[in-house]
């Protein structure tokens, strides 16, 4: 499903990301674990096409995405990926329902007539059917992350990339959100790559990739 081979990316003067090899099979749920600054978020950005490698190969479902054009990457993200961020990244002017619909609207993968019923179903599954018309600012942090999860899954993606999804949550809420995310990814047969610096969170996933040492700083 996801494969990195000798991927290099310069991050700043004397700072370089390098991943010799990485592989995640389809349907796997893997934690990209490591301390802050080790390069795990950079790796996620490279996989999602938000960053381009200077060299090496990033292969997803057999396709080398470093060769894909900018607009091709837009379509690739929209069609195949769902994002869950640490800071939720919901769009403040829109309601809970609209936030979920927006994911499908931009991706344009799901037929328009299914946007609303599918969004309603996803929000039902994350337990937010009663907050459809609420704006993100009125939700608790746990509710916001649940909306983000619903938005990420509504588009029927092949791959979910989650960057510290529990980083802004208290332990109890984090636990609940993790349970929900893992359950949904299993039910939907979606590959999950989850970045975390928290060993406890990483241990909840069947697989872990240790990101320590991905970023190298040149010594002068």
């Amino acid at each position: 499903m996801v494969e990195l081979d000798k991927v290099k990316r310069k991050l700043g003067p004397g700072v370089t990301f390098f991943c010799n090899h990485f592989h995640a099979a389809a349907g796997s749920r893997m934690a990209l674990w490591g301390p802050s600054g080790c390069g795990k978020s950079t790796m996620l950005n490279l996989i999602s096409g938000l960053l381009r490698p200077d060299s090496g190969v990033i292969r997803i479902d057999g396709k080398e995405i470093q060769k894909v054009s900018e607009s091709g990457l837009d379509a690739y993200r929209a069609e195949r990926m769902g994002f869950v961020f640490q800071t939720f990244n919901l769009l403040a002017p829109f309601t809970v329902l609209q936030n979920v619909i927006l994911g499908m609207r931009f991706a344009d993968v799901i037929p328009e007539k299914e946007w609303k019923p599918r969004s309603l179903a996803m929000l039902e599954r994350v337990g937010l059917a009663h907050r459809l018309k609420s704006k993100p600012g009125t939700l608790s942090v746990g509710e916001r992350q649940r909306v983000a999860i619903a938005r990420a899954l509504a588009n029927n993606p092949k791959l979910i990339v989650a960057d510290e999804p529990t980083g802004s949550l208290d332990p109890k809420t984090a636990d609940a959100v993790m349970t929900l995310l893992l359950e949904l990814c299993e039910q939907e047969q979606v590959t999950l790559l989850l970045v975390t610096h928290d060993k406890g969170i990483a241990d909840r996933l069947p697989e872990t990739f240790d990101c320590s040492g991905l970023v190298e700083e040149a010594t002068s």
Partner: peptide, 16 residues
């Protein structure tokens, strides 16, 4: 800027 980046991550094109 962040909202625009989110939209782009969700699949919005530059033209949109």
């Amino acid at each position: 800027k962040r909202d625009l980046a989110i939209m782009r991550a969700l699949g919005a094109t530059r033209g949109e």
